[in-house]
């Protein structure tokens, strides 16, 4: 399997940059990643009644967490702020990104890793703003993992001191569990989805470093209790910041852009 683009991957994951020319094989890529070995340990315990018991004491996601740590180091060395953008399908992640890139107007360099099961629609939408974007298609997969993001980063080659937004697969369940090496997990919810989402999907809202409440221009037309939404989100995640905004009309966008500037300065 090509470790850069994933072509030939049995798992069906594909990393592509729409519009780029196909590359030839064989090739090599310096990756700068050197994941450490297992963090667990093992030793034997004899049991007369049963077989030999080997203590592993290993985190199930240890491998993903090691790769995420390698991504985090790789990004930190380059002073890159990586944001893992998560939501249900249709909450407006891609529209928010298009608007964010347009409003920043080159103020902050942004590039994007798009995650979807299929199609290059979103990467092409981002590219249309003039921004670099690679598409990861997970095939049957319901979330991005640290290995996919490592491969995406190598294709994307983001510049130093820039922002990389990783738009995760639209899903309020699975992506919450997988560390990608990002600096912050940002959860987007739209008012058309209903204010009950935090309590229905507690793991996602517990994992969030920031919650963006999108489509607030539609509040006059939907039954959405903003105060209840914020209260429920904070019952799961007491200190989480919630920024209401409208990606299409621009209301509240400046708070989100300020958040990006502040966190890039700290990375």
């Amino acid at each position: 399997m090509c470790t850069t683009c994933g072509c030939g991957d049995d798992a069906g994951v594909r990393v592509t940059e729409p519009g780029s020319r196909p590359h030839s094989h064989p090739h090599s890529h310096g990756d700068g990643h050197s994941p450490s070995r297992d963090d667990g340990h093992d030793h034997d315990h004899r049991d007369a009644e049963h077989g030999r018991l080997v203590m592993l004491e290993q985190q199930v996601l240890a491998k993903n967490d090691r790769l995420a740590l390698a991504n985090r180091h790789w990004l930190a060395e380059r002073e890159i702020l990586a944001v893992n953008l998560m939501s249900s399908p249709g909450s407006g992640k891609t529209t928010l990104l298009e608007r964010t890139i347009r409003d920043l107007d080159g103020d902050l360099p942004v590039s994007v890793i798009e995650g979807d099961q299929e199609t290059q629609f979103d990467a092409r939408r981002i590219q249309a703003t003039g921004c670099r974007a690679v598409q990861i298609n997970t095939g049957a997969g319901c979330h991005l993992d640290a290995d996919m993001v490592a491969r995406g980063l190598r294709v994307l080659e983001p510049p130093r001191a820039s922002v990389v937004v990783i738009e995760n697969v639209g899903n309020l369940v699975c992506p919450a569990l997988f560390d990608l090496g990002e600096a912050a997990k940002v959860v987007v919810t739209s008012v058309t989805e209903g204010a009950d989402k935090p309590l229905k999907y507690p793991h996602m809202f517990r994992a969030a470093d920031l919650v963006l409440l999108n489509k607030i221009d539609l509040l006059p037309y939907v039954d959405f209790d903003v105060a209840r939404f914020i209260r429920d989100a904070r019952s799961l995640n007491p200190r989480v910041a919630v920024l209401p905004l409208s990606a299409t009309k621009g209301e509240g966008l400046s708070d989100w852009l300020d958040w990006l500037r502040k966190h890039l300065a700290e990375s």
Binding site: H50, R52, E57, Q59
Partner: peptide, 17 residues
């Protein structure tokens, strides 16, 4: 204002050979 102490584990504790 609470901190979770336990219940989030996801570990392989041992295997029997």
């Amino acid at each position: 204002d609470v901190a979770v102490l336990a219940g989030q584990q996801l570990r392989i504790t041992s295997v029997e050979v």
